[in-house]
Design a protein around this nucleic acid. Sequence first.
DNA 1: CAGTTACGCTACGGCTCGTAGCGAAAGCGA
DNA 2: TCGCTTTCGCTACGAGCCGTAGCGTAACTG
Lengths: 212, 212
Amino acid sequence: MVAAMQSRISGPRTGRPRSAEADAAILAATRAALVELGWSKLTLGDVATRAGVAKTTLYRRWAGKNELVVDAVAALFDELELPDRGTLAADIEGVVIQFAAVLARPETRSGLMAVLAESTRDDALRERIRTSVVDRQKRLVLEGRARAQVRGELPPEADASDAARSADLIFDMVAGAVVHRTLISAEPVDPPWVRDFTRVLLLGLAGAATGP
Amino acid sequence: MVAAMQSRISGPRTGRPRSAEADAAILAATRAALVELGWSKLTLGDVATRAGVAKTTLYRRWAGKNELVVDAVAALFDELELPDRGTLAADIEGVVIQFAAVLARPETRSGLMAVLAESTRDDALRERIRTSVVDRQKRLVLEGRARAQVRGELPPEADASDAARSADLIFDMVAGAVVHRTLISAEPVDPPWVRDFTRVLLLGLAGAATGP
DNA sequence: CAGTTACGCTACGGCTCGTAGCGAAAGCGA
DNA sequence: TCGCTTTCGCTACGAGCCGTAGCGTAACTG
């Protein structure tokens, strides 16, 4: 009787369970296809063949190409972290280099931009990208600022709305510059560039924080 | 437009000339289709029907969907200008607002990101985007800096390589922030944001120019 | 007028999509 | 062990779009 009560809580417990290996194989095959073919020539039939599953299995789990690629690319952002390097400048340089490394991978370059383009006409897709990719990056900005405030490198925020606004601005400036440099200018985010960028950004933030 | 111009310059002069109205109609139809359908559901057959031309005419002028959309979107960037507003800050704010207005249009949002995604695997397409979209924006950065140096707001550059490096950095920071804010964060580039952004950027540039 | 090129139209093979239907496989509970 | 349920692999299918070929006509030149 206890077991019967438990079995009702989380979804259907009967029947054949979905294969976790199939999920992993499909996402890996999607990334491989993105590298070899790019977004436009990627077909779900080809992904299924690469993954060793039937095409119908793929359609049972993802609504379409967009959702599949978002999940495949989102996994690449799991590795982003913010190790404490002692100073705000070093923290920023570290996260910029990490972020650029993920963006420079061919599967990210072709996959992420394409789903972002599609997301402009698909709110559900936009939300999926926001939660699985963008917010994960944004958390790094918030962490970095909190650390810098503890160290005394940045003053604490006066009120919550100012704090949110400035965090959004910093996020757009950092992520935007790296994305533009990597995907549009198509030039490397190498140490000299990172140093120059961090210098300008930090001087700007410090100046904006002190005087009006 | 590009194809038509090339055929007139380097090609033979005899025979029926290509219709300039057809070019304009096709590009306008492409933008309309981008607004209504987005990138993925846009088909060349549909564009031809909207433009009132035969599908074969379309294929005679553009190699495919990518090239067509690049030309259709590039035309939207023709209106970008840099009126002299007296100060560097005002110049930056003006160009940022203009740039954001172009990016906020639905045809730009869905079309530009998609061709950028495709360009990661197509060097010719990348070059086409660079000359018809990116370089046109970059020129505004160079103009703005030159004006600021004449006014004395920015010091003249020591050597040419430093000047090029810093122009690239400024361009990536300005365009990147606006692109990220508009297309990824999906929030408006409104006057408060523009003011905050310009303030941080200018303080950063001023600090980087004076200090070590 | 003859020559040349662009155009509209039709038709076509080929590919991908997304779904339906089937029998077999894999777990769960009695 | 035997059902019950769900997933899986496979095949097949209509639909839609792609990109091209062929043909007759239109437009412009010398």
